[in-house]
Design a protein around this nucleic acid. Sequence first.
DNA 1: GATGAATGAGAATTCATTCAT
DNA 2: TATGAATGAATTCTCATTCAT
Lengths: 209, 209, 209, 209
Amino acid sequence: MSTAAPKPLTRRAERTRAKLVTAARKVFEKHGVLETRIVDIAKEAGVAVGSFYTYFESKDELLREVAASLYGELIPPLPPDVGLDPRARIEAGNRAYVSAYQKNARILTLVQHQTLSDATLRGLYEEARAAFIARVERSIRRLQREGLTPKDVSARLAAHMLAGMVHEFCYTAFGFESLRFDPEEAISALTTLWTRALALKPEKKKSKP
Amino acid sequence: MSTAAPKPLTRRAERTRAKLVTAARKVFEKHGVLETRIVDIAKEAGVAVGSFYTYFESKDELLREVAASLYGELIPPLPPDVGLDPRARIEAGNRAYVSAYQKNARILTLVQHQTLSDATLRGLYEEARAAFIARVERSIRRLQREGLTPKDVSARLAAHMLAGMVHEFCYTAFGFESLRFDPEEAISALTTLWTRALALKPEKKKSKP
Amino acid sequence: MSTAAPKPLTRRAERTRAKLVTAARKVFEKHGVLETRIVDIAKEAGVAVGSFYTYFESKDELLREVAASLYGELIPPLPPDVGLDPRARIEAGNRAYVSAYQKNARILTLVQHQTLSDATLRGLYEEARAAFIARVERSIRRLQREGLTPKDVSARLAAHMLAGMVHEFCYTAFGFESLRFDPEEAISALTTLWTRALALKPEKKKSKP
Amino acid sequence: MSTAAPKPLTRRAERTRAKLVTAARKVFEKHGVLETRIVDIAKEAGVAVGSFYTYFESKDELLREVAASLYGELIPPLPPDVGLDPRARIEAGNRAYVSAYQKNARILTLVQHQTLSDATLRGLYEEARAAFIARVERSIRRLQREGLTPKDVSARLAAHMLAGMVHEFCYTAFGFESLRFDPEEAISALTTLWTRALALKPEKKKSKP
DNA sequence: GATGAATGAGAATTCATTCAT
DNA sequence: TATGAATGAATTCTCATTCAT
């Protein structure tokens, strides 16, 4: 919303910038965001500290960029294949989320933490979260329209809560050493709970008399 | 479980220490944990910086104390009255959690965030969390034993996920400006989703004379 | 020169004061003067910090007291028995110094070090040193008068240098781990070098009529 | 003997580093080592405090560097001209030591004093001292071999003691206001005492057929 | 554009000394 | 006198950011 000047970078500049982002992600992941000093990022990227400021105004700005890309990966465009029955769609969504989270669990958690001290960052997170929830909400609303799920719980609330359940599960399961689960079992459980929570009726067979 | 000497404090010491804890909680809440400097706490407590170090080794140590008391409040001993039907019990639990969270929402969130950079603190959180989940798990297991809920999802997983749903809902609903809900509606929704997720059968009537 | 009021202390006060001096010496020796905090002394003495200030104005003042007593021990009144021949007297002096130093080597060294930052303390040291040297000087002067040692080196300079040799030897031999010597051999060597340095002629036999 | 990377400094860095060392030496000398704060050194060097930490980890590290260079100056490579008779050689050695000490008397004393609280520093001093003594010892051993001095005192002990005499004399003569001597007279006295202590026989004339 | 040295505003921590009890 | 909590000046060290080369 404010990314300002598009500024076409030269080839070299592009490369340096990219090196910095990659390096930052690596170092953040290894040592934590707060613990990471600009020097560390620069060193990892193999450039001078000064160069950092050629591309970013501050550590926070860089962090935001990293966060944006992470959140992008978290909620993949959407399950591309249609026609699946509700439970299958839900499972696909859960599986996608869990896998994506797992892949970047540590850094996701770390970034999440900066959320509090940086309003912009929080905005980014809320945005990503909202996008995910919106999709869920839309899906629930459709089910309600089709009479497959009751309307006693508002689609918005339900979406919030169910999406939250999945997110929180990932956060703790991947963030705390002590909570390890078999991913498949977890996905299945999440899906079952979710499906039942919506009191999903078996899809009306469109078919065969 | 504790290190060395408990050292009984004099009346005056006791008072100063308490002033510091109270002040810390207030200042943490107002400005954030990271942003709070020892001086701020001391000033708020109306004592000299040095006095801080008479009672605490570092900000972290004090934070841990604050956290412990917060987590204590979060999961109240348990609903004392029995004989409630499952849905009522679930609702009671949810209501308790939501209210407790709401009361200290901001500082809870802030403390939570320090969880990543301080292992001891994280331990405290995991412990509190585990206690809550354990209660839920026990309750689910009982329902399973009584044949009121299916066993296709392990009690442990279900407990994790449902407790997580509630927690995460509180975290976001109270933590993000943009997500405001009517508490009663939320509690009711959480309870409905939870109950349905467990596919709770209406309690077998013990009755019929 | 300024010890001010004699102030007769009560029995109890006397005891507390003594406890502090003893404690200080012990703690200084164990941890070094600079490293020792008033609390340490008080704790070791089993009294409250505040009590320290009842008897001493500062750590320095206490240190001076400790130093004075140490220096007192270093140069014992003098070898009481007369009539010894010069070499024997010299040996006696050296032996006394070496033994006295050895007994309190560590703390002597530590105290010595404070000498630079505390003029009063330095005064004390110089005084003690001067006393020792004065004795040596007197002794050399007598030998010169008796024609037993040449006058080409002034008694004052010689006293300084020879006394210094002994002192420095003790300082390094007892202060550095790496320089250990057999005390007897050392005393003998010191005495030989000293005697020869003075080109001592065998005492003129008073005898033979 | 050194830790890790020597890192070749840029011209500018080199200059800043040197400024710091020079400044430190000056400030240490003026106010004492302990009394000197990092800010003082930085101010004297005309750089920011932060720059201090670009080159040194702590005051102690810098002090070690200063000490090393001082000790280096104290024991000059060695009197280059040979063929001197023993007494002349001894006198040359003493003169060199006294002059070198005198030139940096104050700071040498100050540095010496830090020796106790910093083991590394002490190591440096012991090393320098050992080098000086070793030279003396070698020289005495040669004299013993040539039959010019008796073997009743071991070369090692004698070296320790005589070198100590000279050192201690410098330490007190230049360190204490009250002990001023005419340098020439002192050097002569030291040499005489030293020579006699070794009972040096006049060199056998190589001459006369 | 790149470099890396220089900057200096903070923040934590210590401990001699005071003083109310 | 004894106690020990309270005080706060003093110092060290860090690291984001600037800027001369």
